[in-house]
Simulated assay, not measured.
Amino acid sequence: MNSQTQSLQTNTPSRTATAVFGGGCFWCMEALFETIPGVLSVTSGYAGGHVPHPTYKQVCSGTTGHAEVIQVVYDPARIRYEDLLEAFWEAHDPTTLNRQGNDVGPQYRSIILYADESQRQAAERSKARAAKRFSRPIVTEIVPLDRFYPAEAYHQDYFRKNPTEAYCQLVIRPKLEKFQKRHTSR
Rank of each mutant, 00 (worst) to 15 (best):
D146W: 05
H66V: 07
I70E: 11
C28H: 09
T95M: 12
T16M: 12
Y46A: 03
S135W: 03
Q107G: 01
V104A: 04
I111G: 03
Q180L: 15
T35F: 04
S126M: 07
A67Y: 01
Q119W: 01
A153V: 12
A87R: 01
Q4R: 13
A166Y: 11
T16C: 09
L176Q: 07
S3I: 10
F88P: 02
I172K: 00
G22E: 12
K181E: 12
F88A: 02
S7C: 09
F148Q: 02
R160H: 09
V104R: 01
I112S: 05
N2D: 15
L170R: 10
Q9L: 15
P144F: 05
C28F: 04
Q119T: 03
G48E: 12
P137W: 10
T55K: 01
V42G: 03
E124F: 11
A17F: 01
K161N: 13
G62H: 08
P174Q: 15
R129G: 00
H66E: 13
K175A: 10
Y56D: 13
S110T: 11
T140Y: 11
T140P: 02
L32D: 08
Q121N: 12
P163W: 15
S3C: 04
Q71E: 15
V139F: 10
V143I: 08
Y81W: 08
R99W: 05
Q9H: 11
D157Y: 13
D103P: 00
L170H: 09
T140M: 14
A77C: 04
S126H: 06
K127V: 03
M1E: 15
F33V: 05
H183Y: 13
Y46C: 06
V104P: 00
D103V: 04
R136G: 00
L170E: 09
G62R: 08
S41F: 02
A130W: 02
P163C: 12
C25K: 07
S7Y: 09
L170K: 11
N102V: 05
I36N: 04
Y158T: 03
A122T: 02
I138E: 10
I79M: 04
L176W: 05
L170F: 06
C25A: 10
T140D: 01
E30A: 14
L145T: 05
D75F: 04
S61E: 10
T64Y: 07
V42E: 05
P137M: 10
E165N: 13
K175E: 15
F88Q: 02
Y158H: 11
A128S: 09
K181L: 11
P52I: 14
Q4G: 00
G22W: 09
K178G: 04
I172D: 07
A153W: 04
V143A: 15
A122E: 06
Y81K: 07
P144Y: 06
E34Y: 05
Y74R: 03
S44G: 02
E117F: 00
V171E: 04
T10Y: 09
T184A: 14
R125M: 11
I79P: 06
F148G: 00
H183V: 00
I138P: 12
E90P: 04
Q107W: 05
P163I: 13
L170Q: 10
S61N: 11
G24E: 13
Y46G: 07
D146L: 08
